[in-house]
């Protein structure tokens, strides 16, 4: 596994239909979070599988003061990897 210090997982049951899903981002390395968020470690947010771009959400987190600009790439990639997996699973699931 890559040691990025950031992990993304689904925060809700994935019924395979909704475009908007809840994701939970775990920050394993607290040094990545800024200022008053240093005591945090879990960030929950929703992501639209059809309309949104992982890197865009990572940039919003940076603009919101959660992450340093230098971590935007890692955060974006972590979200992208998870989203790709979720989409892959959906494509393989044949609706009954």
């Amino acid at each position: 596994a890559e040691d990025t210090g950031v992990r993304v997982e689904l925060a809700e049951e994935n019924d395979g239909r909704k475009a908007s899903i809840a994701l939970r981002l775990w920050v394993e390395d607290p040094r990545k979070l800024k200022g008053k968020y240093k005591d945090g470690g879990v960030i929950e947010f929703t992501f639209d599988l059809e309309k949104e771009v992982p890197e865009g959400v990572a940039q919003e987190m940076v603009e919101s003061g959660l992450f340093h600009e230098s971590d935007a790439k890692i955060v974006g990639k972590s979200i992208r990897d998870r989203v790709a997996l979720i989409k892959w699973r959906r494509e393989r699931t044949v609706p009954s």
Binding site: Y37, G40, E44, F45, L66
Partner: peptide
């Protein structure tokens, strides 16, 4: 709890919480 909400200008909400004890390791 120490949960904090941040709302970006796009309207997206980020909910920041501490890591639960059970998920902490090496501490």
């Amino acid at each position: 709890s120490a949960t904090t909400q941040v709302v970006h200008s796009t309207g997206r909400r980020f909910i920041v919480s501490p890591v639960p004890e059970s998920r902490l390791k090496d501490q």
